[in-house]
Computed example of a mutant assay.
Amino acid sequence: MRAMLFEVKDLHVAYGSYEVLRGVNLEVDRGEIVSIIGSNGAGKSTLFRTISGLIKPRSGRIIFEGEDIAGKSPEEIVSIGITHCPEGRFLFPELSVYKNLLLGYYTKRKDKKGFKERLEYVFEIFPVLKERINQRAGTMSGGEQQMLAIARALMPSPKLLLLDEPSLGLSPKLSWSVFEVLKEIKKDTAILVSEQNASLCLKVSDRTYVMELGEIRLSGKADEVLANPEVKRAYLGI
């Protein structure tokens, strides 16, 4: 039986004595967009930072392709095939689009042929970045910067992309453009996306987890979660 691509099992994370994640369980398989919806402070960003090696868990397992990767360094996490596009983008604003993408390829920098192939891949998904290749990242629009942040995370050919609050600060139209692109990306890269805009996120997700106060309170197929009365009331204002 083929193993699941990615699993989190009974994950606990604390800042001092305050437990931020309380026994989180979730999974993502190849070819999926899996979303985590929840209000600000639910623990979504902490979960992503723990998966990507920036925070050490108190207990629990993070399993990628059958291997427990909890406690590995961020560079090791990227090298095995998981990249993180963080909330706030964290681009290098004074550097060009090209140099931001080059930095995204850092762990594979010796493979120059592969770099050219990945450039072609991200330019096919985000044509505007090719037009802006020599432009400084800090002078681009918010939507273009978000596209660049995602493209940078895609440069090392990840098998799993962690995408944290991609619609933050964007207009509804630009937010939808970003989420539409995810359906193309998932053909090659599974996606775990966290988002406060539940209505938008659920429309492109295959499955969804609802997180509250560091715990998974509800999970299921996205259309089933979208139809749940509690989700409608709490996150959709219906």
Results as ranks from 00 to 15, higher is better:
E224F: 10
D164P: 09
G142Q: 08
P166C: 03
F123Y: 14
A234T: 15
A70Y: 02
L168S: 14
P127K: 01
R109I: 15
L202E: 03
S45M: 01
E117Q: 13
V8I: 10
S175N: 04
P93I: 02
Y98C: 06
G43V: 06
E195P: 06
G16H: 04
S39L: 13
G81V: 01
L148P: 14
G41I: 03
R61E: 15
M211K: 01
G53P: 05
I62H: 02
K130D: 12
I80Y: 05
E27I: 05
A190Q: 11
Y235W: 11
V78E: 02
K9C: 05
S171G: 14
E212N: 10
A227H: 12
K108R: 15
L160V: 09
E224V: 14
E184S: 10
V231H: 03
T83Y: 01
F48T: 01
V193A: 04
K159W: 08
P158I: 01
L154K: 10
A234S: 15
L226Y: 14
K130M: 09
I185W: 00
E180K: 14
F126Y: 14
V225K: 03
S45V: 02
K221E: 15
G214Q: 03
I150Q: 03
E76P: 10
I150N: 02
A153M: 08
I191T: 09
Q145T: 07
E180R: 15
S205V: 14
G138A: 02
C85P: 10
L54M: 09
E230M: 11
E87M: 07
Y15F: 15
I238H: 13
L102W: 11
I82A: 00
P86D: 00
L213N: 14
I63A: 08
G220E: 05
K108Y: 10
K232A: 11
A149R: 05
T46I: 05
A42D: 01
V231R: 01
T189P: 07
M147Y: 11
F64L: 06
E76S: 13
P158R: 01
R30H: 13
H12C: 10
Y235K: 06
T50V: 05
I150E: 01
D29F: 07
K203G: 12
I216C: 06
K113S: 13
A70N: 06
K159G: 04
G143I: 11
S194T: 15
L168R: 09
S199D: 14
G60P: 04
V225F: 01
G16R: 02
F92T: 07
P74D: 00
V78G: 02
P158K: 00
G237M: 07
S73T: 15
G220R: 04
A227T: 11
E144I: 10
L168Y: 09
L11K: 06
K186M: 09
Y121H: 12
I82W: 00
P166V: 02
